[in-house]
Design a protein around this nucleic acid. Structure first.
Lengths: 180, 180
DNA sequence: CGGCGCATGTAACTTGTTACATGATTCC
DNA sequence: GGAATCATGTAACAAGTTACATGCGCCG
């Protein structure tokens, strides 16, 4: 495991919490992980096969439909723990809508407002989704004692979505004033 | 210009504000754009050549050292404006340190605190950098009247860095309590 | 029994990074 | 004159997306 893709570790980490299918992993990255992670099927499925070949995960029978439940092996846990200790490299980001906002001096006021308002709407929707997931998580039992950390992660997402929504809101409500 | 890379538009947009070299573009993405954009030399230089071949930009002589000053052409402005009008596709993100925090139930408390504290330090440093750039921008003249929008963009970065720094700070100062 | 969503898979492609090379200029 | 930084460039590679194909099971 000396390549640079993080996909294997995302998978190992999720499986370390409990069995999962490739489809489950995809759904997780699309919902509660969305503000900090993404994966496509084209990454997930080949990576699952590769991890299996290396003995880091194993298929533990099929559940409903064609769904495969994957489990982490002791070797997998070791590989995961080793990665977890490493310092993460500097982060990079690409938010096209922020880039467009930066360039929005070249737009009409209407187009800029449309951009802002659609931005605000997306943050608002993501916020609602995370907030309701947070409530759900708070209610269900916590067998492994890791809910506090999951909740803390979600709180970071909530804080981010709120800050972004409010930022857009302020530009829409009083666009001429200089807010901080 | 029917491919999916946004690099050409970043370049066109920056050149639309004034002449720039490839190195300048890189520096901009490394500093004030860092919270929402990144580019590597391996993308920038080939892309500049391609944009020149297509007549969207032109080299306007050399300045100090071997530095090439690039300018946008009328065709370039049109291509830029056309892209700007399009709705941006859904955003994806990858923050390895947040992923690691999510998985930090598998860490010792010391390792988790180290992670949080290094995270906080990076947000703090980025925040300071953006704040001082903001002050600098406020002081210099604004010939094209687009400083307000640049400042607004920077404010989003500042809000993000603050929220992230404070989130990490709260987890470090009173890790047992349930903050919002 | 038709359509939708679940679920897996993969091939072709694009995008982006890394590592390297080169040379000029500034500063000590 | 040597080191650091500025500045450009590219080849090899890795990573990630897209578009497709397949089939099952559930629901109306």
């Amino acid at each position: 495991m000396n390549d640079k893709s993080r996909t294997p570790y995302l998978i190992l980490g999720l499986l370390a919490e409990g069995p999962c299918s490739g489809y489950d992993i995809r759904r997780i990255t699309l919902s509660r992980f969305r503000f900090f992670w993404s994966e496509s099927f084209g990454q997930i499925y080949p990576c699952l096969k590769k991890l299996e070949r290396r003995g880091l995960i194993a298929a533990s029978g099929k559940s409903g439909r064609g769904k495969v439940a994957w489990e982490i092996t002791p070797d997998g846990r070791r590989a995961f723990a080793a990665w977890l200790k490493l310092e993460a490299p500097p982060e990079t980001a690409r938010y096209e809508s922020i880039l467009k906002f930066y360039f929005s001096w070249a737009m009409s006021k209407e187009d800029r407002d449309r951009l802002l308002s659609s931005f605000r709407g997306r943050q608002e929707a993501s916020l609602k989704e995370l907030e309701s997931f947070r409530e759900e998580l708070r209610r269900i039992p916590d067998p492994h004692g890791n809910h506090d950390i999951a909740l803390a992660t979600i709180d970071l997402g909530i804080a981010t979505y709120r800050a972004w929504r409010d930022w857009a809101g302020a530009r829409l409500d009083s666009p001429a004033r200089d807010q901080r």
